[in-house]
Design a protein around this nucleic acid. Structure first.
Lengths: 194, 194
DNA sequence: TATCTAATTAGATTTATATCAAATTAGGTG
DNA sequence: CACCTAATTTGATATAAATCTAATTAGATA
């Protein structure tokens, strides 16, 4: 959603008369004179406001005989309300992601040497998963690997390739079939099924 | 939420400069001069806008040394976004309730005579419940009734008081203890536990 | 077609407000 | 204390917009 549209929308509903019209129409459709009567304003003024509301698709109209009924469009209002929610939450989502990334980075710095080799496998499950995922880098999703290729890859990080390989399988990062290994899709990772 | 506060809030964020400030602050706190620089406006103008944002508690400030950092308050923004959602949904909620009431009324007209007696018990569960609830009118919650009193009450609607009474119990509208009957609270109605 | 009513447009007035330049204040730091 | 910088206040200006009255248009109906 472009900023300009948001501004125009909020400017539109940031007026006592128009917000009262919206509230009234949320109870059901009304025609111009009825609105004017309830608000104690002239029809001309109501037209002025309805034009703005129509321009933003907040209300629509339907003629019935000689009078025109104005309807609120709740879906449009909701749409902007959600956009506002996004704007407010952007902050928190990004902050959370940043914090997680920082935490992962710290674990990696703790358990790998400066030249990128694994010192030891963490005992805490959470940290172990971070370490295991880190070592997946360089393996391509969808590609099939022989056991030897997998072992060679692991040896770049640690001598005990058998343990790492077993952990990868156990934590669902990859699966083996007929001696061939392949990465699982990300959404399956570390969901260990009984 | 009073209308006036909503109007003031939306008027406040219905301005391009202020919405840009909000968007910027959603990425993290900034000080006045930084905001002025990024927007190409003078510090005086930024102060003007920040005052409005502060008045609505959309931002708060914290001094660090010589400069003041301005923080977005996402919870406040979210609060108003939800209020706007409510406003838009009011319509639909009420409409739904109206429709339900109309449906109930139709069922009651179908199954009761014009002088208020039950013609027969509906076969469809949904309609049966409506009919059973209708006949509860006149019984007071919290009051204890003898079986005879219950039967007399039912007879105003239908001769077969035994069936109706059994249905009331089965569908959790009331319970019996030592031959004494009492209405269950509404929230327990027709939750049949195995 | 003539007429009636609801809605809109046009024009005028008044109020609100976004912006800046310049002066002032507030709080640190030498 | 003197000084420095960020923020605020003040006052001026220009623009936007809410409202009204009066005139006009659009549609329906007799």
């Amino acid at each position: 959603m472009q900023l300009h549209r948001l501004v125009t929308f909020f400017k539109t509903i940031g007026d006592p008369t128009r917000l009262r019209i919206i509230k009234m129409l949320s109870q059901g459709p009304l025609h111009g004179q009825a609105i004017a009567g309830k608000l104690g304003l002239t029809p001309a003024t109501i037209t002025h406001h309805l034009k703005k509301l129509r321009d933003m698709n907040i209300v629509c109209e339907r003629r019935d005989g000689n009078i025109i009924y104005f309807y609120l469009q709740p879906s449009v209002v909701k749409h902007y309300a959600y956009a506002l929610l996004d704007l407010a939450e952007q902050n928190e989502v990004k902050k959370e992601m940043k914090e997680k990334a920082a935490e992962r980075q710290k674990v990696i710095e703790n358990f790998f040497t400066s030249d990128g080799r694994l010192k030891n496998i963490p005992a805490q499950r959470k940290k172990k998963l971070i370490v295991l995922e880190h070592m997946l880098k360089g393996l391509q999703p969808g590609k099939q690997y022989t056991e030897k290729e997998i072992n060679e890859h692991i040896k770049k990080f640690h001598e005990d390739y058998a343990t790492i390989r077993r952990e990868w399988i156990m934590n669902n990062y990859m699966y083996r079939e007929n001696g061939i290994y392949e990465l699982n899709p990300r959404e399956m990772w570390h969901k260990i099924d009984g």
